[in-house]
Amino acid sequence: MTTTTVSESQPVLSVRDLHVRLPHRAGIVHAVRGVSFDLQRGETVCIVGESGCGKSMSAMAILNLLPRGAKREAGAVSFLGEDVLNAGERRMSELRGDKIGMIFQEPLTALNPSLTVGEQLMEVFRRHRPARKGEARERALEMLGQVGIPNPSERMSQYPHQLSGGLRQRVVIAMALMCEPIMIIADEPTTALDVTIQAQILRLLIDLKDRFGLALLLITHDLAVASRVADRIVVMYAGEVVEEAETSAFFAAPRHPYARGLIGCLPSAQAHGSGAPLQIIPGTVPSLIGEMRGCAFRERCPEAEPVCRETIALRDLGGRRARCVHAGLAEALA
């Protein structure tokens, strides 16, 4: 195991110009198109967007867990300053489950149905640590307690199918924490759960993140969740980052028309009983096959102009970024 030294200002995760291409019947799908962002120590960054925007693909690319046939290219991906893009799968498999914890949407796929809860937790620990069985068992019991599972020693000998969805996701979280990670990547961790359970699990995740000082990269389609837990929001559309900002600044005044549309079409944005229709975003997402010219949102955008057909870079707006030609106006006038 390599030891890594961490300076205070160094981001935990730094991603530069990440691209993912997947083969498809109709051609090569360019699913992630030049994504860049940083995640600082103890910070929560939420990547938000609708299905197919590339948010999960970006996470999988960082973890080197892309589906077969998918190609990853990037300027750089570094974890605690270490180049993990060119480090190879062997190094990544050392980091996954150890310094990088992972939580996915469906806890049943993350758990091995033929192993007891205890066996799986201990296995993760002993894969990454030269630990005796007794020590691993102690750690597993401690973590089950940390994630709020009652009677941990009883649960240790149960199989995943004997647990409810909420309990399973707690086990997955315990597993992600076994080796004292520095960063957790959670992809829609509560989407498959009932609303009351979702609130409990999210609350747990945030409490644990604070308790252990973790950096959290949370992938979610749910803007309400993101607004409540994120320090920074990254909005993706058609494989690109279209906006990035500190959470309160983002929701106070989103700079990209897509981000504004997304917030506007939530049913909660509509006053109850007004009878007025919900705001919609007309049209559909463009095809991600082949290269794209100009703003990917322009066909659906109420503010589109001829200039939007030209390639639009992510503009720096002082502490926030947006990929829109109109985005600098508010700052310029202020």
Binding site: P150, Q200, R203, L223, R228
Partner: peptide
């Protein structure tokens, strides 16, 4: 109702009392 989250920057996730269902 308490679990149905709306947009509320920085407000966190409400702590639900476990009066109805046990930890799940």
């Amino acid at each position: 109702l308490a679990s149905a989250l709306d947009i509320a920057p920085g407000k966190g996730i409400p702590q639900l009392d476990n009066g109805v269902a046990a930890v799940a």
